[in-house]
Design a protein around this nucleic acid. Structure first.
Lengths: 262, 262
DNA sequence: ACCTGAACACCGTTCAAGT
DNA sequence: ACCTGAACACCGTTCAAGT
């Protein structure tokens, strides 16, 4: 009984040229050498990611994606069960880019702190590279309760838990760390990405002061602190919060190594 | 020039019976005494929230919402510019419930730590009360970069900043605290809510073990730690992380009171 | 003043038909 | 084997028309 994998689609065997790696999973076509080959699940998902990056999520329809691929919408249904699982595939495709990131290795050769740092920065690069896709990464219902955004794959969970348990964390400690880490990444990156989206969606208007016509006086502190509030300190905040989280996990690790008995 | 408010709709004057408060903004109708009064922006938004709570976000269409209100879809356009701003209104409606929450007061009479605690728990109650709406709260593009989810209103930002600056925080410290606080709430609550959604979406199946048919052996740690991973410790995690955040902000506060000059 | 009917352009999805 | 055309049910939204 071949049930369903994480996203509900049939999983093609990986008979594509690039074996497992290559950060450039988005644009290129199927077999190397031919110009516009036949359709292909990978090609469709790549085109969908590209389409969302350029036109925004709300612009993605089966018909338009078909047109983008030079094909009628109905042709897509041979490779994808429907729009919903197309979106699941988009999320999977984007997260899979992490495997091609040379700065994120699975084995933590420089300690678990270094591993958490590199992994976090890798996820952040992906979020910033696909700001229109990231809300999808954040909100698509996971297939299991412990597959948490934004690291939505068994493979990354395994990698994470391995890194920590092989570096002095107890099982409980590693799981607690996984939870705290997911929560931090999700919150920070979703905010950073949405902040980025706001800045460009209005026209080039260099400034849009507060005054909502009427109640300027109603929110004096917001008005006064607007210059501070408008600063984009996302990068610094990310580093700082990440550092702080790692420090906190160091305590978790120490406590979990010697479970005190009363 | 009456431009647009935060959500882009014309804002009706509040000529509705309940003056500003009342946590029960969802179900009740317009004027008290009459059974099914005329339409009304508030009534429409309340019905939309209720509809999403019951049927899920994807089920909400203008036509179905109209039917739910005993009216043709086209009648809604007299009160709401379109579907997109209906969703903005839904988000606003849900967040406004915070004002009716007796456990969340604006003035922090028991210190800023207590204020942050009560506010956080209030937001959490809302997220858990409207799990299908919360992803919308999390991802709708804010109207300004410093209106951050999940506290998406000028009023709450003002309240937050007031509480902190009147309790020893510098401007910079208060703004930094606002950022860290938003990020924590967003990440944790979005994960908690989506986790909750997963648990009920499949049928009553009490257990859905890992085995994705093939690669059971590929993720041995996930398999081994599945019992731990499956535990729902959201509530405890929330308390702990919140406590930790408050502690961290205590340091920010102390540092920011005496800006050292070198 | 408030709601409706009919209409338009566009969706996702199906299925028999083409090549 | 792979794609298309036509069709179906359903969308959001507009606008003239009803009451």
């Amino acid at each position: 009984m071949t049930e369903r994998n994480e996203t509900g689609e049939p999983l093609d065997d990986p008979d594509t040229p690039r074996g497992r790696g290559g950060a450039s999973a988005v644009i290129p076509a199927g077999s190397p050498g031919s110009g516009r080959p036949g359709l292909d699940r990978r090609r469709i998902l790549g085109a969908a990611v590209e389409f969302i990056d350029v036109n925004g999520l709300s612009a993605l329809t089966m018909r338009r994606l078909g047109a983008h691929l030079g094909v009628e919408a109905m042709a897509l249904y041979r490779y994808v069960p429907g729009r919903e699982s197309l979106l699941d595939g988009v999320v999977e495709t984007v997260i899979d880019e992490l495997y091609g990131d040379p700065d994120v290795h699975i084995e933590p050769t420089h300690g678990w702190e270094d591993y958490l740092q590199r992994l976090a920065h890798g996820v952040r690069r992906i979020a910033l590279a696909h700001p229109e896709v990231f809300p999808l990464v954040a909100t698509r219902p996971p297939s299991a309760p412990w597959i948490r955004p934004p690291l939505r794959s068994l493979r990354w969970v395994e990698s994470f838990l391995t890194a920590l348990t092989t570096h002095g964390f107890s099982s409980e400690g590693a799981v607690a760390a996984y939870r705290a880490y997911s929560s931090f990444l999700l919150g920070h990156l979703l905010l950073e990405v949405s902040q980025k989206g706001v800045k460009i969606s209005p026209l080039d208007e260099p400034e849009t002061p507060v005054r909502a016509d009427a109640d300027v006086q109603q929110y004096p502190l917001v008005v006064e602190l607007e210059p501070l509030l408008s600063l984009d300190e996302s990068a610094a905040e990310f580093e700082e919060s990440l550092e702080n989280l790692v420090d906190r996990l160091q305590l978790v690790r120490r406590e979990s190594r010697q479970p005190r008995r009363d």
